[in-house]
Design a protein around this nucleic acid. Structure first.
Lengths: 248, 248
DNA sequence: TGAATAGTGTCTTTCAGACAGTATTGG
DNA sequence: CCAATACTGTCTGAAAGACACTATTCA
């Protein structure tokens, strides 16, 4: 971090302090917020304003926006702020996904976005959505609408990362409500992975991991009741040493 | 990406086009370049200029610097450029690590860096080093000198990521010279992981992966010669479905 | 009683861990 | 021959895959 870019006629991002008078890229943060609804993985999108001077008017996009150097202490705080603004709540899981930056991705100029992804239970996500926000079902790695900027690509990367980590971590637990049964947790794994899992191996793995604890209640139904569990206090995800059903 | 940050007196990063007249963070890219030297993991550091008006004069830092909106098409190209400037060569492996951004990490103001990490063979890395660059041995997750900015933290994250991925991928292959033996590859795994591996299981895993192919040569020594291998044409890393010796 | 789902047990397969044993060079 | 390292084989154990079996509710 020593040299500075070749001096050019002062364009966007300039400042006249010593050594910093060169153009700066735009800096944004975007958040891919996942939940499970109606037995399917969903992502939260917001519709961009119509007909103003900004790019992609009316298009659907990931929630996000410019870093506010006055409001945001750091990138994660910025992501948490965007998340709260659109959902009304904090997320039980928020992880950095990566960054995308290029001259071409935003018509307003060279820009770089720091992408995060978040998981939240459907029960939480149903309340307090922003007016311009809506849940979209994930089909493959995409949604049925064309997204603004390179958000299609970011979304696809988030889905891939989620599916990959679900193979060997307890991440789906963050998509569950406060109390849930083992078959419900297994169903969530299956929805994210898109394939069925063996009940026996699944139960063994989950119960031997230091992840969930039973509560003194059962889920009633038209059949044998199921034991209810909740996440243990330690909220960090559990990593397993093997994936589930190794694909081929 | 719709709202813009609250308007303030125009500070650094301002521009007077419609809707973009708010301060922009500084945008940099840093690269953690690893190699193996003298049976130990090493990282490339550069010494910052002495006594100029920039922060951390004379301190060691990761190679990197500001994104140049005129030169760099995208972030990865910027990282590849920094890498080439310091080592004289391209790296066989370059992956994004994450981003670090906050108001505090750079005394010049709110800044965000996009961090990458790279792997290269010692043979390549020995030639054509920049004058201000030097290899430092990794001790634990650090080096023996205090680094500029938050580069200690970024380096620690890179070492963790590398160690973690080495458990279930073929990444160490990118630290090997053109031709190498299986015991040499195993030694590289052991250096990165910091623990011995079982010879038998290691050989079985490597040979059954579609990763390396024998060349019609042997490594001679004062003992039984060893078969030489090279990486197969497909250069993408191989992912295994289990880790090596699950710790504890 | 039967449908439906929860939960367990059992056998097989896979692969790492451990480690002994064989192979091939130079001295 | 011996030392040294390359390489192979064999036994064991842990955990997943497959799937049958038992358990408990409501209608």
């Amino acid at each position: 971090m020593t040299e500075k870019p070749g001096q050019k006629a002062q364009q966007e991002g300039g400042r006249t302090a010593a050594g910093l008078d060169f153009p700066r890229p735009l800096t944004t943060v975007d958040v891919v917020i996942f939940t499970i609804q109606a037995d399917a993985l969903h992502v939260l999108l917001v519709q961009r304003g119509q007909g103003n001077s900004e790019p992609f008017p009316g298009a659907w996009a990931l929630p996000g926006g410019f870093v506010d150097v006055a409001k945001d202490r750091d990138l994660e705080a910025c992501a948490a702020r965007k998340l709260k603004e659109k959902t009304g709540v904090a997320s039980p899981y928020l992880e950095q996904l990566g960054s995308w930056g290029s001259a071409a991705r935003d018509p307003r100029g060279w820009s770089a976005t720091h992408a995060y992804y978040a998981l939240m239970p459907a029960s939480v996500a149903e309340r307090a959505l922003a007016a311009d926000a809506q849940w979209f079902q994930i089909l493959g790695e995409r949604v049925k609408v064309k997204l603004a900027f390179d958000h299609d690509e970011i979304l696809a990367a988030a889905v891939q990362r989620l599916r990959n980590k679900v193979e060997y971590t307890s991440l789906p637990a963050y998509l569950m409500p406060e109390e849930f049964t083992l078959p419900e947790l297994q169903r969530t794994y299956e929805i994210v992975l898109g394939r069925p899992l063996e009940k026996s191996a699944f139960r063994t793995r989950m119960l031997s991991a230091d992840l969930i604890e039973p509560v003194a209640k059962m889920r009633k139904g038209p059949n044998r009741p199921a034991q209810l569990y909740r996440l243990k206090a330690a909220k960090t995800p559990v990593y397993f040493t093997r994936t589930f059903n190794p694909p081929e």
